[in-house]
Design a protein around this nucleic acid. Structure first.
Ligand SMILES: [Mn+2]
Ligand SMILES: [Mn+2]
Ligand SMILES: [Zn+2]
Ligand SMILES: [Zn+2]
Lengths: 153, 153
DNA sequence: GCGATATTGAAACTCATTTTCACTTAGTTC
DNA sequence: GAACTAAGTGAAAATGAGTTTCAATATCGC
């Protein structure tokens, strides 16, 4: 009986609507996965999601989690990201566009928006004759906590 | 009997030196792969490299190409990149740092340097308490040729 | 040349993700 | 509410990039 929050509820409703529109079926599995995803902290991997979902319903299969996250991505509720490690990570697609700063030591992910960079990316693409459609920008470094921790050792 | 160029020759010599230093062996396979890589156009995949190498020596195995590219990367002669499609692509690591602008239609890859963006990335990381170690930035769009071609159709 | 050590190619294996398929369900129709 | 049917499910097999294993082969220092 997780406490419900407005964003998760809205997302859930949107998902249900999407299913109806596409004549797809509402199932207990999909509900469980989507609910857990929407209430979670973001940047979650399929494996993590699978682990969480299994606690509620241990019979759900890996393939269903993959299929459901694909659905969520298609309907615009989730964004799929790929950082430096192969597996996909998903976040709720509510927010404005943002990029990521990732700690190479502890894996912490910090989000940021920097309009001046976005503007320069536009300018750069135009200068080279391109019509810009999207970009991928990840900054990698060491966070304050990890630098402190390093010093103490 | 490919025409030799200075950069490729220098790279080749550096590779040979590296092998000697590490007490690794010089083999015909390594020579063939490295030579073809160094003379190539850059942003090459293992598959493409393998195809080219096979024309010279059809008995070379995939694993050897992978192993050799790993060696080249370790010794600082090649840079491994990962664009939007899974497989690794390699380029000669001679040049200054640069980022990439990629056409979503034809796959063309254009390199660019933009110090103003680099500076803002530094600034952003610092503002968030990080010591910046690296970044990944790729711009995706449609190139001039493809836009023209699109109009004609 | 000898011998220790590294390298090779083929095939087996990983890891994340997708596909297949027999079976079970949800949503509709009477 | 039973019957129908298209969609969904889980398990297992398949995929694709890349790595590892291993027996056979080649290189390098003497
Ligand atoms: Mn994010
Ligand atoms: Mn490049
Ligand atoms: Zn950290
Ligand atoms: Zn193009």
């Amino acid at each position: 009986m997780a406490k419900s929050n407005r964003l998760a509820d809205e997302g859930f409703a949107r998902f249900k609507t999407y299913l109806r529109e596409q004549r797809l079926k509402s199932t207990a599995q999909r509900d469980a996965i989507v609910e857990i995803f929407l209430k979670g902290a973001g940047h979650v991997s399929v494996e993590e999601l699978y682990g969480a979902v299994r606690k509620q319903n241990p019979r759900i299969g890996y393939a269903t989690v993959y299929r459901t996250m694909k659905l969520l991505t298609e309907c615009g509720l989730a964004d799929e990201r790929h950082f430096r490690n192969g597996e996909a990570r998903y976040e709720i697609a509510e927010k404005d566009h943002h990029d990521h700063l990732i700690c190479e030591r502890c894996g912490k992910i910090v989000e940021f928006e920097e309009d001046r960079i976005e503007a320069l990316q536009e300018e750069t693409a135009r200068r080279l004759g391109f019509e810009l459609r999207g970009h991928k920008m990840e900054l990698y470094g060491v966070c304050l906590d990890c630098r402190r921790r390093g010093r103490e050792n």
